[in-house]
């Protein structure tokens, strides 16, 4: 099992961080931390880009993040046509990482405020697919 069912359209079935999906299905959004230099990474990295060590550990992204920026996608790329319109957002978390994901559909554009608190959570998609999304904290 790997990334076959990740996102609306997935591109890479096999990756060294496949445990990310296992954890996502178990209800957790995970990132990695390098045990050697302490660097934190989302998306998770099986090897540290900074010191190139492969001694990394998983940790759950639990903090309340702050909304940095968002955009309403009216025209989706191929494979995403039926999803549009959807809102993509960039959120900064206390764990020293930023995540790009969609806003939960129950958040309307008129209710969005820059800097609002959001959490990142697993999101079930149609056809047994899975992703993560931002929800109101």
């Amino acid at each position: 099992m790997g990334f076959e069912n990740f996102g609306t359209v997935s591109f890479t079935a096999e990756a060294k961080v496949a445990d990310f999906i296992t954890q996502l299905e178990a209800g957790k959004v995970m990132a990695t931390r390098c045990r050697k230099c302490g660097g934190s990474y989302f998306p998770p990295k099986a090897d540290c880009p900074k010191c190139l060590s492969s001694d990394v550990e998983w940790f759950e992204v639990k903090s309340q993040g702050k909304l940095l920026s968002y955009t309403v996608v009216n025209y989706g790329p191929s494979g995403f046509e039926n999803d549009a319109p959807y809102i993509l957002a960039l959120v900064k978390f206390d764990e020293g990482i930023q995540i790009l994901a969609r806003l939960s559909r129950d958040i309307e554009e008129k209710d969005i405020k820059m800097g609002m608190n959001l959490t990142v959570n697993p999101a079930k998609l149609p056809d047994n697919r899975i992703a993560y999304e931002f929800r109101r904290a």
């Binding site: 990334f3 990740f6 996102g7 609306t8 359209v9 997935s10 591109f11 890479t12 990756a15 998306p43 920026s69 968002y70 955009t71 309403v72 996608v73 025209y75 989706g76 790329p77 191929s78 494979g79 995403f80 999803d83 549009a84 959807y86 993509l88 960039l90 790009l100 994901a101 969609r102 992703a131």
Partner: peptide, 30 residues
């Protein structure tokens, strides 16, 4: 439009439906 998805880090940005440039530059403009 399908090729656009190969123009970014498709495993992560792409899987969210980022793909085409206009949404990203819309955020930039805002």
């Amino acid at each position: 439009y399908y090729s656009e998805m190969a123009s970014i880090d498709h495993d992560w940005d792409g899987a969210q439906g980022m793909g085409l440039p206009p949404p990203f530059f819309s955020m930039t403009a805002q």
